[in-house]
């Protein structure tokens, strides 16, 4: 059973995604803040982490807990945001621009968890985020 961890400050987004993904047989957990999400990921790494960039605490963009996950258990990442943050060191991942359509987001999640193979390695000088072309 595939698993997704949703990290989003908006409880409604978490509720919608949990409801829809669970109905599709995807085990879904959620957190409102990145640090809390990373703690959940350490407990049981999901296949995919969907992270809204607003969930990152003001304390900084500390992704080191993510890097500490064993490479073969490191989840894929889907980042949601209004703007791609220039200069920030995000681990490699896909990017979906907000505001998004839920149908598009669900499809994207299914595509990503359907993909095989481990996540590209990440470090502090991470691979760039793949941003979809604007339609």
């Amino acid at each position: 059973m595939s698993s997704v961890l949703v990290v989003d400050p908006a409880e409604e987004t978490r509720e919608v995604l949990e409801t829809v993904l669970e109905r599709r047989g995807i085990s879904t957990r959620s957190a409102g803040r990145l640090l809390a999400g990373l703690a959940l990921a350490r407990q049981a790494p999901p296949d995919l982490m969907v992270v809204d960039l607003e969930s990152i605490d003001d304390a900084g963009h500390d992704w080191s807990p993510f890097g500490e996950l064993p490479a073969d258990h490191r989840p894929k990442l889907l980042l949601l945001g209004t703007f791609r943050r220039q200069g920030d060191s995000f681990p490699g991942g896909d990017f979906l621009r907000k505001p998004y359509e839920y149908a598009v987001l669900i499809r994207k999640i299914e595509e990503l968890i359907g993909e095989s193979g481990p996540c590209p390695p990440c470090s502090s000088s991470a691979a760039p985020i793949k941003e979809p072309a604007l339609s």
């Binding site: 409604e12 919608v16 829809v20 209004t82 907000k98 505001p99």
Partner: peptide, 17 residues
């Protein structure tokens, strides 16, 4: 307002589903 709209979109998506 964007967050509110995102919430409405989410609710509407569930209603549609």
């Amino acid at each position: 307002i964007k967050n509110i709209l995102q919430g409405i979109r989410g609710g509407s998506y569930l209603i549609e589903l």
